[in-house]
Design a binder for these strands. Sequence first.
DNA 1: CGCCAGGGCCTCA
DNA 2: TGAGGCCATGGC
Length: 226
Amino acid sequence: MIRKIYLLLYKKFNSQGWWPFTLENELHPRHHGISPRNDRERFEIIIGAILTQNTNWKNVEKAIYNLNKESLADIKKIKKISHKKLASLIRPSGYYNQKAERLRIMAEFLSRNPINRLMKVGIEKLREKLLKVKGIGPETADSILLYAFNKPIFVVDAYTKRIFQRIGYKEKSYEELQELFMSNLEKDTKLFNEYHALLVELGKNYCRKKPDCKECPLAKLCGKYN
DNA sequence: CGCCAGGGCCTCA
DNA sequence: TGAGGCCATGGC
């Protein structure tokens, strides 16, 4: 069933090309359908994962644009910039004081633990290290693992919880839901990447807080609809 | 105008 | 472990 749902979503929405990030000569993050290839791109994804916490991605794009205008997708620069300045640049993403602090803490962590070294750490150990960083919870950690480090882990977000609750799955906690996917799919980075992105697309367009079930690709197998 | 968005921390049972 | 308050902007 987990795989069937994936296929239905893919048929409806096609490839999502996640995670959206910015190429060297751009300022605005976009979906490229490729993995990050250098530290700047990986760090920008990490920044986006923090800024999008409980926030619309469109607002995060504005904040990332502001940062890129000053080439601030850079660990050393984020460490050096003042809190006031950083907070004002990321203001559109909301919670800007908290998030400025979280970006600074993450930059310090990555300064002590360089990305090229983290890339070689085992997935479980890397996840534990990320979760110890203040401001990084399960979803942000897993987003970083999957989209910045290309590790095969499934990201569970509010959309995932809402969609699968409505379909009729009893799993509730983050770990239970994550295990549902991890145990029913081959541990493939590309598959986990696409699946999560497709769930976000469904959550935004159909399985909203007030659901629009009419053209939902999952309507036939959804407990709420039937 | 109200509602909501790709969470996480802290506090208190 | 889980519920509730807090953090905040911008789009619709």
